[in-house]
């Protein structure tokens, strides 16, 4: 089942066409990586999908519904979760409260507003923390977490909202090599177990080829190749413009 369908979106900044007609799709339970050299249009494309930018033309459909130009918070309420390149958590809240805040936001207005946030389903929050391995840190201030842990907390916050599509911008940026694979193994397992569609951008080719079911390669605002890792690895154009294997 197609979860996300991006159809011929384009965006120009002044005279520069950052994205010049990109189409891609993500199915439920599928992990898609969006890659390309610097300036290829990954970030612009990603921001069009997550609602931070409105495309000049084209269409973004999520779960069969046209969501082009929807704001991030409207998308979030529909079931699109996202993480940031530099992880964004709420450092002034405890780790558990970060998750509880995500749960409260997801529960909408119905969430019990009269009680302290820390009383909002702490068991449920701990269960989510358990899944990312942060259960023991629930009472700590989120601002005191190590960087890798903050990334996992961010993931926990997104998971607490039970998204159907997960958008991750450079999920492993700034992490050590072993941490990277731990995190992506975790994400992969969750995607598989819960049928979450995953779209991520990534610089680290080990991560990309190790954790993506399908890879979409951008260059100069266009898709130059798409397919499973083996096919992309073998693609001549990709090898030339991106992997740079012929440069020597």
């Amino acid at each position: 089942m197609t979860l996300l369908a991006v159809d011929d979106v384009a965006k120009a900044f002044g005279a520069v066409a950052a994205v010049a007609g990109v189409s891609l799709s993500v199915a439920a339970g599928e992990r898609v990586a969006l890659i390309g050299p610097n300036g290829a249009g990954k970030t612009t494309c990603f921001n069009i999908i997550n609602g931070q930018l409105r495309p000049d033309r084209g269409r973004v459909a999520f779960d069969g519904r046209d969501v082009t130009g929807w704001r991030p918070r409207a998308l979030a309420r529909r079931g699109v979760g996202r993480t940031f390149q530099i992880s964004q958590t709420f450092p002034s809240l405890t780790v558990r409260e970060n998750v509880q805040m995500a749960m409260a936001a997801h529960g909408g207005r119905g969430a019990a507003i009269g009680r302290p946030l820390r009383r909002l389903d702490p068991a449920g929050a701990d269960a989510v923390l358990e899944r990312v391995g942060l259960r023991a840190d629930g009472d700590r201030g989120a601002g005191a977490l190590a960087y890798g842990d903050a990334k996992r907390l961010e993931l926990a916050m997104v998971l607490a909202q039970s998204p159907t599509l997960l958008l991750m911008d450079e999920p492993t940026a700034g992490m050590a090599a072993d941490e990277r694979h731990q995190l992506m193994d975790l994400v992969s397992r969750l995607a598989r177990e819960e049928g979450i569609g995953l779209l991520f951008t990534e610089h680290d080719m080990d991560v990309v080829f190790g954790h993506a079911d399908r890879i979409v390669v951008l260059d100069r605002g266009r898709v130059i190749a798409a397919g499973d890792p083996a096919a992309v690895r073998a693609d001549e154009t990709v090898r030339r413009v991106y992997l740079g294997l012929d440069d020597a």
């Binding site: 979030a76 940031f84 709420f90 809240l93 805040m101 507003i113 820390r118």
Partner: peptide
């Protein structure tokens, strides 16, 4: 300050982008 409302203000102050991405206005 302790209720979800108050905490969401602190959250929005800490990281407006995160808050919006969680569906909070």
């Amino acid at each position: 300050a302790h209720t979800p409302f108050g905490q969401s203000l602190r959250a929005g102050r800490d990281s407006p982008r995160r808050a919006e991405a969680l569906g909070m206005s």
